[in-house]
Amino acid sequence: MAKKYPVQVKVNGKMKSAEVEPRLLLVHLLRDEFDLTGTHIGCDTSQCGACTVMLDGMAVKSCTILAIQADGAEITTVEGLGSREELHPIQQGFWEKHGLQCGFCTPGVMMAVNGLLQENINPSEAEIREALDGVICRCTGYQFIVKAVQHAAELIREQQSQPVSLENVTTRGDVS
């Protein structure tokens, strides 16, 4: 068996470590070692985006990154986006606008949307559809995902006129 290396990451605000083979994918580290199974795997060619997480503030496909590459990084998975009691505006948007059916693609799609909304708080329909190019949803036909994103953007804009800002949504619990 290949030699193992230590990896330490901050996931959803908590420090976590593991000994991993160099070939271990980040998505497997999250799912199998840390039991964060909200991040899904939908393909093996980096197309579907079901595995998307925030890594140091950027939306990335965790199936395309080795766990050891993430050493020292700060990661937010869907579990860290918001809780049932305190949903993130993106989660709220998806719930209210029926942006999910089976919900399998949803965690990754929401993280990709998080990436978009960090850069563009008022995206047009075309910009939203373009930003969803890295994800595949087989259930919804995307229309209500688009509506969900528009609604989430609206909620975030409302929120931004209040003290808490969007830069701080990457790691819940870290909101300053």
Binding site: T39, H40, V78, E79, R84, L87, Q91, L100, F104, P107
Partner: peptide, 12 residues
């Protein structure tokens, strides 16, 4: 069914 799915707590 959504709250568990959007918070990453579905069980597939």
């Amino acid at each position: 069914e959504d709250p568990k799915l959007i918070t990453g707590h579905g069980q597939f």
